[in-house]
Design a protein around this nucleic acid. Structure first.
Length: 197
DNA sequence: GTCGTGATAGCCT
DNA sequence: GGCTATCACGACG
């Protein structure tokens, strides 16, 4: 399968978020290769989106979002969990897609060993913090290019047919922006973090 | 199965 | 000093 090119990310963020469903996230670890089929994403778009870190302007933490598309934006949340985002749209327009969940495709044992609490395959990466723990994605990867074969990249995959669109999770503080239907997931996947009502 | 709660540390004002 | 794009656990039934 081909690696997704930078052009894939240099598009409206909602399109990227939706078309990332079904794509394959690949992480190369010392123990071997791990891969997840992406089944859940969220879009965070620009300075006007109060749920987006960039809504308060550029800071040391979020500067990667303002840069070139096709790079990883990794940050720490709640003091304990990492979250993986893929930067979209042009330079100086801050936007990214949060990768929230995936189905194990390859290296399941490796990921399982990093997720001792997981009892079944779907527990491995059914949430952004879990996904990063399983693949050992840390802030060392902040700013990494995901359009070239390396420690972290994304390959093409089959498009998901039944996509559910609903509001984003955990952003109640964003007021009316919390209601925007900017979350996407594969209706047929058992591995999504949370289902809409 | 669903619900409520506390842990925890870097970032920003 | 207040906040946060979460997770896992225990109490229910």
């Amino acid at each position: 399968m081909a690696i997704l090119s930078r052009d894939f990310y240099d598009r409206p963020t909602l399109e990227v978020a939706k078309s990332l469903l079904g794509k394959i996230l690949i992480r190369e670890l010392p123990e071997g290769e791990t891969a997840l089929r992406i089944v859940e994403t969220e879009a965070y778009i620009g300075g006007d989106d109060k749920a987006c870190h960039a809504s308060k302007g550029m800071t040391a933490r979020n500067r990667v979002m303002f840069g070139e598309p096709g790079h990883a934006y990794v940050y720490l949340i709640y003091g304990m969990y990492n979250c993986l985002n893929l930067v979209t749209e042009k330079n100086s327009f801050p936007a990214a897609v949060l990768i929230r969940a995936g189905e194990p495709i390859n290296g399941e044992k490796i990921m399982m060993s990093r997720r001792s609490k997981a009892k079944k395959p779907c527990d491995i990466a059914s949430g952004p913090g879990k996904l990063c723990a399983a693949m050992n994605i840390t802030r060392e990867l902040n700013g990494a290019d995901v359009c070239i074969k390396g420690g972290l990249y994304v390959e093409d995959g089959l498009m998901v047919e039944n996509v559910v669109v609903c509001p984003r999770i955990g952003v109640d503080y964003a007021g009316e922006d919390a209601l925007r239907p900017w979350r996407f997931y594969d209706k047929n996947s058992p591995c999504v973090s949370k289902r809409a009502k």
